[in-house]
């Protein structure tokens, strides 16, 4: 599953202000709402669902990456976005490192396969060191969009 199939380009953020987990999740979900991908009335409910999922174990999966996610009945297909935090966010990650790169995913309740395929793509692309490093260094949403496009077009050799 390519990034273009689930990442909402208008919701990409290149410089998160939040320095803690809840703040980062709120900021990214807000971006999806502002991009029109989730309804305003569902926003708080989605934030709470993602935070509840984090209580089961952090999605800060190491190497400065987090994949906060939830299932939610208000979406009818997988949606997601990318956010970069230059100062780093305390996310209770497995390796204790701050998170600089977020992939936030919201899935319909009945499509677990799409969620796995999105994680597969994120994972395999991040295995390419240059892609991961360039994303973390990106200064604008446009730079991030270009990097995702290049990854989709196999320009990082994955």
């Amino acid at each position: 599953m390519k990034f273009a199939e689930f990442i909402c380009p208008e919701a990409i953020r290149a410089d998160l202000a939040a320095v803690d987990k809840e703040g980062a999740i709120r900021e990214i979900v807000q971006a999806l709402q502002e991009a029109g991908r989730i309804q305003a009335k569902e926003q708080e409910n989605i934030v709470k669902a993602i935070l509840k999922r984090e209580e089961l174990g952090s999605t800060g999966i190491g190497r400065g990456v987090a994949v906060p996610h939830t299932k939610h009945s208000s979406v009818d297909r997988l949606i997601g976005t990318v956010a970069v935090s230059h100062q780093g966010t305390d996310f209770d990650s497995l390796d204790g490192e701050s998170v600089h790169l977020f992939f936030l995913l919201i899935s319909p309740t009945d499509r677990p396969g799409d969620h796995l395929r999105a994680l597969e793509n994120i994972s395999r692309q991040l295995r390419v060191d240059t892609f991961c490093r360039f994303l973390k260094q990106a200064k604008t949403p446009e730079e991030i969009r270009q990097l995702l496009d290049e990854a989709d077009n196999h320009q990082f050799g994955s």
């Binding site: 190491g62 190497r63 497995l94 796995l116 395929r117 994680l119 597969e120 994972s123 395999r124």
Partner: peptide, 18 residues
Amino acid sequence: AYRAEGTEVIQILGLAAP
């Protein structure tokens, strides 16, 4: 063709095993 290191969550997710 795709082998994940057991200590790397990111790589394990790349298995996409249903």
